[in-house]
Amino acid sequence: MKRFQKAAGQWLPKMAKLRGVTAAVVASVALSGCGVVNHMVYKTTGDVLQGFSRNHTVPYLLNTDDLAMGCAMSEATTPLLMSFGRVTNEPDQIAVMLYLSAAGCADEQAREHELTGLAALGDMDGDAAEDAMIRQKRAHALAAKRYFRSWQHHNAYYGEPGTGECPDFDDDLDEFIYMAGLLSGLQALNAEIQSTSAIGVPKNVGSMVGRATSCLDNEKWWGAPMALRATIWAMIPGAMPEGENAFERLEMSDRQGEQAGVRLSHVFHAISAMNKGDNERLRDVIRRHAESIEETPSNEDWAFVDAMSTQLIVAISDRMWVENNGHRTPLGQLGTFWDDEQEDVETMDLDDLL
């Protein structure tokens, strides 16, 4: 009996120790299992949100004309959607649209600062003008970073544009996002130049984009691919092929966009005219845009793109008005200018009513 008690006294501590080790192992496995389960939940959630955003959120947004809502959505949801790249595949395709839209928000801020600066110059307020121009450059720097992120995600998903074969597009939205990524690349370079900062955008982006536009169906996309290519021809010395005329191509693209109700070509045409210093052509593009939106409603499937085009045309018109007349384009008068000849207006002699 004493011998048994002695043996038990020796083994009981060992059993207790064993139970402690076993409990620790079980707890470790349980916690590890929780981590695996959480990862699976996060991954599934990320995959669902990516698919929903691509297949429903983006198409829904493109059907609307509320640019401010789209801007707010992109800035608010980009960190959330992009964070799922930590637990599942990187959402490169949806990132093209998210960063492009968020960059447009910063671009809009830059345009507002520019108008403030121009107005301050008109009032001979040098300090206010300089402050506005500094804010403008900061906004352009932010826009350049966002556009460049869009371009990088575009290349990660589709491959570097203009260097090989064209991608095999799954559907129209896939092709549209490809075009949007090309626009991001060109806008990244433009915003970097205007910011006077070094963001790291490759200087050959223009030529890459120009070559890649041949992968897009010009008629399907309202003449925009050809207009984008022609804009690059007009802006980059030596880029235009022999026998081509950039502005003739832009005129043709304008007609396609006007008929389709998606007037993105007008923006490219206006930018090309400004770059050449052709003020009469610029005025003509703005007038045609104003007439077209009165005559042809926006394409319902691409209302957002057409609304964005109008916003950019209005921004160009506002800049001209502020520079020359101190205020923006009067409401309802897009397509008119401060020095237009005023039509004779019939007046009533109020004396006869007294």
Rank of each mutant, 00 (worst) to 15 (best):
S32L: 13
S53W: 01
D127Y: 00
Y178R: 02
D352N: 06
L182R: 03
N55Q: 11
S197V: 10
A141V: 07
T163R: 12
V48E: 09
F176E: 08
E165S: 13
M69F: 14
G326R: 08
P237C: 02
M73S: 02
T116H: 04
G326F: 05
Y147G: 14
R281T: 12
E291G: 07
R135C: 10
E295F: 05
S265K: 01
M15W: 11
G257Y: 08
D174Y: 06
Q50N: 12
F148L: 11
T44E: 10
L182G: 13
V209W: 02
A16R: 12
G126C: 00
R287A: 00
E130Y: 08
R319L: 08
D318G: 13
I232L: 13
G238T: 07
E165D: 14
E160D: 11
Y42D: 10
P237R: 03
A290P: 06
N55L: 10
G51P: 05
G159C: 07
I271E: 02
G33L: 11
Q194K: 14
A144E: 01
E294S: 15
S184Q: 03
L264N: 07
C215L: 03
V21F: 01
C215E: 01
N245G: 10
W221V: 12
D65G: 15
A246K: 10
D351C: 01
L81P: 10
D217E: 07
S265L: 01
D254N: 14
T213F: 10
I236L: 09
C215T: 08
G243T: 13
L115T: 02
G85S: 05
R283E: 09
S197W: 00
S272A: 15
V201Q: 04
D170R: 09
S150F: 01
I313V: 15
D125S: 12
D172S: 14
M40L: 14
A227H: 04
Q136M: 15
A95Y: 05
A156F: 03
C71E: 04
M73H: 13
A30G: 15
W222N: 06
P202I: 04
P330K: 00
A119Q: 12
T196G: 00
N63M: 12
T347E: 10
M226I: 12
D170E: 14
V267M: 01
D171S: 12
T196Y: 00
P167N: 02
Y60A: 10
L282N: 08
S207M: 12
A129E: 03
G85T: 09
G335E: 01
D170Q: 11
R146W: 02
Y99P: 09
P241D: 02
T22M: 08
A103C: 04
M252D: 13
E114L: 15
I193V: 15
R19C: 07
V267N: 05
D47Y: 04
R3N: 03
E90W: 00
S150R: 05
I286W: 00
T296S: 03
T45G: 00
M69I: 09
L354E: 12
G210S: 15
A106I: 02
A180C: 01
Y42H: 03
